[in-house]
Amino acid sequence: MFQVDLIEKCKRNDRKAQLKLYRKYCDAMFCVANRFMKNTFDAEDVMQEAFLRAFQKLDQYNGEVAFGAWLKRIVINKSIDKLKASKYMISVDDIQLEVVEDDDWTVDDHISLEEIKAAIDQLPEKYRYVTMLYLMEGYDHQEISEILNISQTASRTQLMRGKGKLKELLKHKRNGTRH
C-alpha cells in the first residue's frame, strides 16, 4: 500500500491503516524520544502521545515534508514539552548576544560515541536541547528556533556555548591525559 493511500485512510479513522502507520514508524520515533527522555517508560509515553497527536492532527499534514519528518517533529516537541513540565527552562535575552560561527565539531579519535552522548547528557538543559537538535536530529537554526520557541540568534548562541562546554567535558576523558 502506498504511503499516501495509507495516510488518506488514516485521515478517515481507518484503525487498520493507523496500526500499519504506527508499526512503520514506532521504532524510529521511540529512538528519537529516548534520546531526549533517557528513560524507556517516558520515551514510550512521549511516543504514544505523539502518535495520538499526529492522528488527531493528520488533516494538517499537507505532504510538503516526508511524513516521518512531520511525525519526528511532533515527537521532539512532545519530548521537550514533557521535559519542560518537569523543569523550568531558562530563556536567553537576545539583545545582548553576539554569535561567532564555528563549525568545527571534531573530537579526539579515542573518544567513543557513547562518551560523547554521555557528555551531551551532562550539558545544562538549554544547551543540551539545541545541541541534540543540531547534532543528533540534523535541524538547522531556523527549525530549532521554531521548535524551542527561541530566536535563531539564541539557537546559535546556545549551540556555541553548548559546544564549548561539551569540549570541556570531553577534554577530561581518558583520565585527563588529553589536552
Rank of each mutant, 00 (worst) to 15 (best):
I76A: 03
K24R: 15
A119T: 10
V107Q: 07
K9D: 10
E8C: 10
L19I: 11
S91T: 08
L159Q: 06
A118L: 10
I95R: 09
M160N: 11
D93H: 04
T40P: 14
E44L: 04
E8N: 15
H172G: 07
Q60A: 05
I74W: 03
T153L: 15
T40N: 12
T157V: 11
L113S: 13
S79F: 02
K165T: 08
D108C: 10
V65L: 09
V99A: 03
I95Y: 09
N34M: 09
A119K: 06
P124D: 12
K117C: 09
K9H: 10
Y61E: 05
A43L: 07
L135E: 14
K57D: 14
V46K: 03
D94L: 04
R35P: 02
V46A: 14
R128W: 01
R178E: 05
F30N: 12
D121P: 06
R15M: 07
Q152C: 14
L83M: 08
I147E: 11
E137L: 08
T131L: 03
D104L: 02
T40C: 06
R174V: 11
A28R: 13
E168C: 04
E114Y: 11
L135F: 03
D94S: 11
S112I: 04
S79N: 02
I90T: 04
L148W: 12
I150D: 09
C31L: 15
G68A: 12
K171V: 04
S112N: 06
G176H: 05
K87G: 01
E114R: 12
E115R: 09
L123Q: 06
L71E: 02
D103V: 06
Y88W: 02
A43P: 08
N34T: 01
I90Y: 00
V92F: 03
Q142H: 13
L113V: 13
K171R: 08
Q122H: 05
L52D: 11
W70V: 04
K165Q: 10
K20I: 15
I7G: 09
L166I: 01
N175Q: 08
S155D: 08
Y22L: 14
K173C: 13
C26I: 15
E115C: 04
D103N: 13
N13Q: 13
Q60R: 10
E8D: 15
R23T: 05
Y129L: 14
D59F: 07
M132V: 06
E98V: 12
D42P: 00
I147T: 15
M47V: 09
L97H: 06
K38R: 14
M47T: 15
S155G: 15
M29A: 13
D45V: 01
V130H: 07
L170V: 01
V92Y: 03
K78S: 04
L123M: 02
I95P: 00
Y88M: 05
I150M: 13
S145M: 09
T106P: 00
T157P: 00
Q152A: 13
G162W: 03
E44Y: 00
A33C: 09
Y88K: 03
Q122L: 13
F51P: 06
T40V: 14
M1F: 07
